[in-house]
């Protein structure tokens, strides 16, 4: 096995073989799996997560609804978690002055593709997946994020059916900045919790 578990050519060969068998036996149409994947990925981009974050920054009521029931709240922005075969539960957690959240999938690489697009290679690496639950402060430091000693760290392991997104803290000095401009400040790492914004 390679360290990045999607990078193995042996696995790619097996996947192609299984796909060919499924097509040969008429269980899926030719190219159906690729089409389904394309449909799933269409529209998935960190820009969605950034829009949600900017709205949460400017609208405290929306932020409350987002933290209470994220699936319902993101529909207000025309977004949804139902790009796959069934709607996935979304859990959104917000960073505060006292608490920083960071997301991982230690068992595989579960990720909110509809809101963040395909996941970055480091998110799928064994190094990140095994170390961030054990030593999040050290791992975040390697990402260039030095948290104050008093900041509690909460790690969320996407070990079952939910997907997670972090709302980073609104940067200082952005009072009065328009929502669209605020969204432009938000990074993919910020939405996973490995950057401040």
């Amino acid at each position: 096995m390679s360290a990045d578990h999607h990078g193995s050519s042996a696995i790619s060969e097996r996947v192609r073989h299984v796909e060919a068998l499924l097509e040969a036996r008429g269980l899926v149409d030719e190219g159906e799996i690729d089409r389904r994947i394309d449909e799933f990925l269409a529209g998935g981009s960190p820009a969605n997560g950034a829009r949600i974050t900017a709205r949460a920054w400017v609208d405290p009521d929306f932020r409350d609804r987002l933290l209470a029931d994220a699936n319902a709240a993101i529909r207000e922005l025309g977004l949804s978690m139902s790009g796959g075969l069934q709607e996935q539960r979304l859990k959104v957690v917000a960073n505060t002055e006292d608490e920083h959240n960071v997301v991982v999938c230690t068992l595989c690489s579960c990720y909110p593709i509809a809101l963040l697009g395909p996941s970055p290679a480091w998110y799928k690496s064994e190094a990140y997946r095994s170390r961030v639950v054990r030593d999040p402060r050290g791992v975040l430091r390697e990402f260039g994020l030095e948290l104050p000693a008093g900041t509690r760290i909460s790690v969320w392991d996407a070990s079952a059916e939910s997907r997670y997104m972090v709302v980073p803290r609104r940067p200082e000095g952005t009072d009065g900045m328009p929502e669209e401009e605020l969204a432009g400040l938000v990074t993919r790492k910020g939405l996973i919790g490995t950057a401040a914004v």
């Binding site: 859990k91 054990r134 030593d135 999040p136 909460s154 790690v155 079952a160 939910s162």
Partner: peptide, 25 residues
């Protein structure tokens, strides 16, 4: 039912001051 279950790192690893929330059947 599937639950978010929160653990103190010290209870999982013997040290650490963070928390880990795992989703468990």
């Amino acid at each position: 039912a599937v639950y978010h279950v929160r653990f103190a790192a010290a209870d999982l690893f013997g040290d650490g001051d963070h928390a880990v929330t795992v989703e468990l059947w």
